[in-house]
Every structure is written in structure tokens, then in C-alpha cells.
Write a protein that binds this DNA or RNA. Structure first.
Lengths: 353, 353
DNA sequence: TTTAGTTTGTGAAACGTTTCAATTATGATA
DNA sequence: TATCATAATTGAAACGTTTCACAAACTAAA
């Protein structure tokens, strides 16, 4: 592979001149520039980015640390981050921690020894447990946290308005006439969980409805288990709001196992949307997060920091809105229609009570 | 950030000695070794991998080029590749080409200038169009192609037995008594398409059933469009085998739009499985590919090449088997039950005919 | 005490760039 | 033609490692 020396020799100039041509500095005569460019072309020369990084002490590489690309929540976000990074000439490497501390340690060590310029992290950890993120931060490596916001760290974040998102779902259900609306949340250590729960509580309080809360851990299995309990309640809740799609999917399994159906026997709304689900039943009513944008904006924010586009100031917190996508999983169910008939002026009336 | 010089100074040895300690060479006295290790520990020294790469001319980095991580087919494969790479101390960076030639060019240029040691590629291109892969190969960078096998390139590959996979699905349908079984294939330029089509034809010929072929392009939209045509056929086929899950999903939309249902009105089997779909209806009968393994084995094969574990020989082709996962989308449908009643000894008889 | 052999440790070059001070070439002006 | 200003070019150091030939310090045998 040709080096800058080969180019210099062929063009009969010094390597400094070649470097200047590559960098586009103007103090090179047109004639020399042409000669150098011809040599570059002829040799198929590509500057060695490794050497460049060593000298400049900047790798133009950013690392993205997530828990598992296999979780359908992540691919869009990774894609967004990559698009932004590539557009600005940065290399993005993604790492799956699998939530294993040992592996996470290995990954951060690798990131450090490779002198990655900045980090995009979706932390899976609980409050107060960010040894690696904190270490990176204190050693001067910029970090942007996506999706989840560690309150104990002074770090830039890009998140969504989780509370407002759940409120959209609950309001929608209330509007459709549902009154006993249960909520299946995730473990409170996970940052987004308390916010989503708060959204549920706020919307329910506003509608003067009683809280029916269950707690899972954001994984499919917990949705299935909570599902059995929820379906066994008497009276059975008319609707469920799940805090993420994995739990919603688990819940659906419990529903099928009980010989029931969504939305006939119970309505379901959930956080997260997944493209592949279009065409499958039930078509879920969901709170769609701008995951692509989170990745895209996060990467841009990070690169701005790296290039000091913004003068150093306190941490920036971007909060993006969610959007409600109405499917048929929240169509008025049997119980509801019965109630509508019983009360005089129809569904609307039951809302006021 | 501490360098090897700092460590050497603190331990009062030469940098060569520190390097020897790091490399674990035995020509260092225990006393010195301890002194150096203490210094490393005290300074939190981490060798600069960039400098190391420059000197050794090896980056221990591999690039993975796919079309779009957002396609649910890829995450497992990427995960497998990352697991293998990390276990052997390699960095994996994944790139989405989006099937855009311009972007692909940019990506390969980046990979080259960063001196990535080897490449894992799932080529989206058609026969004879692999300028970048061919260039990498001829410049001595090992490449392993996953999932699709470019016949025109002497390159290692890890693929699945596509024909056998489709046969599994068709055989299953035949066994269940279906007789008019349509096939929705993908564009023939895509390598896997002809193999899958061949599997369909072989299985149908074996069962002495007539071919009913449609062609899409592996994208959702084409499944939807082909769906309308398939459903309009008279008599309507009893079953459809889709060549990938995106087209199957598109087909399902067409089914819903026509006011029909799977499997009541038509059975459906497809290539690919996607975890999130568990719990949703219909629960598809599918040909599951070992995508994780493809990534895992591919990365290991590539690293073996990089480290010359295997003496250089001709290209290696790993072919992994697929597995049939039976869901309820291929349960005998209405027409079928009717036919079973008509013929004397039940469904089994109709198979013999 | 030499001599030879074995451990242990080190100096310096090299990897391929960037960068800056210094040098040389080129014109313009006196 | 000599002088000066400006433009163009270059030499060399530096980035942080690895590696190899060599040097120094021991040890064991003669």
C-alpha cells in the first residue's frame, strides 16, 4: 500500500508538500498541486488514518454502547447515529454489553485503549452505578446518554418525554370510554420507568380513575407473568398500558393462553413501535418514540462537543416528543359496549361520571 | 493520559522493558516486572492501541458491511459477529450501506484508510457488481461473505442451505394436505433467490404438484402487491410460501385488506423468523435461519484467516442448515377440510393422488 | 582470576503522518 | 543589479508503540 513517501518521490516533492496538498492548504502552487494529485491518483494513495490519528491525537471514531441490538428498540437508533456520524466523517462502532458487567468492562477498556473520541451510551445500569461512564467523563472523553438520563451524572442527554407519552396512551383509552385501565411498568431502577409511571398516574388522576399497577422488568417473560395475574383479576381490567413492547408481547402470550383476545376481552396500548409488526394481529396502539432521531441528534450533539462547535457550557438535555399511533388493539371491547348501552346518553356520559 | 514513557520513568527502566512486561516476554526479572506492574497500576496506564497499530501494521479491527440493521434479519447476525470478534480481542464496526452505491463507496474508502484488517460482507449487489469487495480482496484484505455467495469471487462464505430450507416448508405443507401451493420469490439477482426458488421447484416436483410462481423483491411492498394478485387468482391457492419475512408481512396486509384471514382462507409459510412476533397472530410457520451462527462462524473464519490459523488454501464455504418452526399459519384451512370430507379415507389419501 | 555463557536490560530505528520553523525561489521595487 | 517582500517548499521533530541488535551484569566453569 502506497504511503505519503511514495507519492512524494513520484511527484518529486517533499512529504510535507504532499501533506499540504491533501489538507488543501493554499500555499501550494497550482503546478505542484497538479503533479501531486496525479501521483496520488496513479498510486491509488489513501492516507493512513492510523498514523494520522497518532499524530493528531484524534481518531474521529465514536463508540456506541447499548445492551442488545437484538432488542427491536435499538436498530433504528443505531442507524440514526451511524447516519449522522458518517455524514460528518466519523466512524461509529457499536457494542452490545448484554448487561454483563464483565463484558461492559472489557468494552470500555477497548474503547479507551483505542482512544475513541467520544461515547454514545444507553446505560442499562441503575442509579449510581456508572463507573465506566463516570471514568470516561472525568478523563475528558465526551459522553452523550441516549434514551435514559442518569441524574447523578453531569452528562449531555437525548431522551423522550416518557411521561407525556404514556399520558397520550391513557388519554386515548379514557376518551374511548375505558375506565379500569391497568399499567404494567418496568423496574424503577431503569430511569425511564419512573417517568412512564408518573405519566400513567397523572393521566389517571386527571380522569379521576383508580390506579391498577403492576411491575415487570421490561423483558418479555415479565410481561407474560404479569399477564397471568392481570387476567385473573376480578373484575378484569378493561385495558392495559404496557411500558414497553417486549412486555406487551409477553402479555399477548398470556392472553392467548387464557383463551382470550385483544381487543375483544381486554384492550392493549404500549410504549414502542416496531415496523415488522404491521400486518400482524393485533395491530397495536402504541406510543412511538423517535428512536432514529435520538440516535441522529445524539451523535450530532456528541460531534459538536468534540469539535467544540458550542463553547463548553453545562450539560445539554434534548427532550423529544412521542407520538401516539392508534391501532385496533384499543377498540372498545365487549364490557365497554355493554356499559354504553346501560348508561343513558352513551359512552360519552360514562366518561363524566 | 499516561504513556509508556511515564511508566518507564516511574519504574526507572527503559520503555523497551515496559513493552516487554506488557507483552509478557519472559526475559524480565521478577523484581523489575513487579516494579513495572506497580507503575502501570499507579498511573492507570493503558497502551495506546493507535500507536501499536501503526507499528505492527495490524489494527485488530474488522468491518461488517450490511444493507440495513433495521431489517430484522440482521441484528442477530451482527450480534453473533460481535460476540466472536470481542472474544478474540477484535473490534467490530458495522456499516449500513442502505444499498446506496455512493454510500457504499464512502464506507469502503473509510475502511481502507483506517486499515481495517478484514471484512465481513453481506452483499446486496447483483452478480458481477462487487468492485469494492474485489478491490479489497485483491489488495490482500481477507473478506468473508455472509448469507449470500457471489459465485464470481474467490471468497470465503458462510451461508445457509436455502433450497433445503424451502423444501422443509413445502414438504410440511404437502404433508398437511395442501395441494395448490404458491411461491413468492425475490429478485433473482440476489443470490439466495435462485436457490430458494430451486428448493420450491424441487419439492413441488417431488410431490407432483403444479408450480404457481410469483416474484417480488424481498421488500414488504412487493409482498403486498403480489398478495393482491395471488388472492385474486381463481381458484385461490391454498397456501403460500414467501421467500422472506418482509414479503410475508406485506402479504398479510393484502390478506387483511381483502377481508380474508391466515390460515382460515390461505395458509402461509415463510423464510426467516423474528423473535418479537411471538405472541402476535398469525403465528407463522417459518424456516428459521441460524443467523447468529452465521455471524459468529463468519467472524471466526475471518479471524482465522487474519491469524493464519489455517494455512492459505482455496476459499472455504460453510453451509449451515435451516430449521422448520411450525406455527399455526399452516393449519389445514377450510378448502382443505372440505376436500378431506369428499375423498374417502381422509386427508392422507389426497396426498397419494 | 579469566573465560565463557546466560540473564537481564537498553538504545535506536521504524511505523506514516502533521506541523512549524527555516530555507529557497520568485517577483517587484529601488 | 541589488534589495526586499512574498510565495513556495522542505527538514526535522513529534505522536506512542514494537523490536532487534547489542551492552551490561551476573554466574559457573576452568
Amino acid at each position: 500500500m502506497a504511503t505519503i513517501k511514495d507519492v512524494a518521490a513520484l511527484a518529486r516533492v517533499s512529504i510535507a508538500t504532499v501533506s499540504n496538498v491533501m489538507a488543501g492548504v493554499p500555499r501550494v502552487s497550482p503546478a505542484t498541486r497538479r503533479r501531486v494529485e496525479a501521483a496520488i491518483e496513479q498510486l491509488g494513495y489513501r492516507p493512513n488514518h492510523v498514523a494520522r490519528s497518532l499524530k493528531s491525537r484524534r481518531t474521529r471514531a465514536i463508540g456506541m454502547v447499548i445492551s442488545d441490538i437484538t432488542n427491536p428498540f435499538f436498530p433504528e437508533m443505531v442507524r440514526g447515529a451511524e447516519d449522522a456520524a458518517l455524514a460528518r466523517g466519523y466512524l461509529l462502532s457499536t457494542f452490545n454489553t448484554g448487561d454483563l458487567p464483565e463484558r461492559e468492562k472489557q468494552i470500555f477498556a477497548m474503547l479507551e485503549s483505542r482512544r475513541t473520541d467520544g461515547l454514545l451510551v444507553v446505560t442499562a445500569l441503575k442509579r449510581g452505578e456508572h463507573p465506566h461512564v463516570a471514568a470516561a467523563l472525568s478523563s475528558g472523553v465526551p459522553v452523550v446518554c441516549l434514551d435514559r438520563r442518569p441524574q447523578d451524572l453531569a452528562v449531555d442527554t437525548v431522551t423522550v418525554d416518557n411521561a407525556a407519552g404514556v399520558e397520550l396512551a391513557v388519554d386515548h383509552l379514557v376518551e374511548r370510554g375505558f375506565r379500569s385501565i391497568a399499567y404494567l411498568g418496568g423496574g424503577l431502577g431503569m430511569y425511564v420507568a419512573p417517568e412512564r409511571l408518573a405519566g400513567y398516574r397523572r393521566a389517571m388522576r386527571r380522569a379521576r380513575l383508580p390506579l391498577i399497577e403492576f411491575r415487570g422488568d421490561f423483558r418479555r417473560e415479565s410481561g407474560y407473568q404479569a399477564g397471568s395475574k392481570i387476567l385473573a383479576l376480578r373484575p378484569r381490567p378493561e385495558a392495559l398500558v404496557a411500558a414497553n413492547i417486549l412486555m406487551a408481547a409477553g402479555f399477548l402470550e398470556a392472553v392467548a393462553e387464557a383463551g382470550l383476545e385483544v381487543p375483544r376481552d381486554i384492550a392493549l396500548a404500549t410504549f414502542d413501535n416496531v415496523a415488522i409488526l404491521r400486518g400482524f394481529r393485533p395491530h397495536l396502539t402504541c406510543v412511538e418514540q423517535p428512536t432514529y432521531r435520538m440516535g441522529y441528534d445524539g451523535a450530532n450533539l456528541l460531534i459538536d462537543r468534540l469539535e467544540q462547535v458550542t463553547p463548553h457550557s453545562g450539560p445539554v438535555h434534548l427532550v423529544l416528543p412521542c407520538k401516539l399511533v392508534v391501532g385496533d388493539s384499543t377498540q372498545p371491547c365487549r364490557v365497554l359496549r355493554g356499559r354504553a348501552l346501560a348508561s343513558a346518553p352513551g359512552v360519552a356520559a360514562s366518561l363524566e361520571s
